[in-house]
């Protein structure tokens, strides 16, 4: 069974997200709403990582080696400025959506295994992660025209 790998992937990515949101919050604290919302979304990822913990432990032995994660390449460190902010939100969006894809896949596996706990965890993650993703999209959209078109003085 490879399911443990996917569980581990989601679990680790979720933990990475806790930090990633914090990094972006700190780098762009001049954009007050970004700072505050990123901190809120970081706390959501924290909760999701926590509810994942028991399932991750249960499937621990299925997991032989650490999977590759998007967070390894994206968002190593955040940058300053409005273009950088757009790029950072974009990176967060990709990571968050990585979680969503993994979750969809996991939920299928969980359903096939009739693992109710796993399915319930997946649903919770899906719900909150979708909210994270929507916020990132909304915020990118509102920043895009000004960032792309208007020159800095």
């Amino acid at each position: 069974m490879h399911i443990g790998k996917y569980i581990d992937l989601v679990h680790r990515t979720e933990k990475d997200l806790v930090d990633a949101f914090k990094v972006v919050a700190k780098a762009h604290r001049d954009e007050v709403d970004i700072e505050q919302t990123c901190l809120l979304l970081s706390s959501w990822s924290q909760q999701l990582a926590q509810i994942m913990e028991p399932v991750a432990n249960r499937y621990n032995k299925e997991n032989d080696k650490e999977p590759d994660r998007l967070t390894k390449t994206l968002l190593k460190k955040a940058r300053k400025g409005s273009m950088a902010m757009l790029r950072d939100l974009h990176d967060l969006y990709l990571i968050v959506n990585e979680v969503l894809v993994c979750c969809t896949i996991l939920k299928q596996g969980g359903t096939a295994l009739a693992d109710e706990e796993l399915v319930a965890v997946c649903e919770e993650i899906e719900q909150q992660t979708t909210r994270q993703s929507s916020w990132l999209m909304t915020r990118m959209k509102s920043a895009a025209p000004q960032t792309l078109i208007v020159a800095k003085p």
């Binding site: 509102s142 895009a144 800095k152």
Partner: peptide, 21 residues
């Protein structure tokens, strides 16, 4: 309509960062 309307706090922020002139 291609962008959400800019709320006042963001207008002031754009002025602060120099892209509203």
């Amino acid at each position: 309509h291609w962008s959400p309307p800019t709320h006042a706090m963001q207008i002031w922020r754009f002025a602060e960062s120099g892209t509203i002139k």
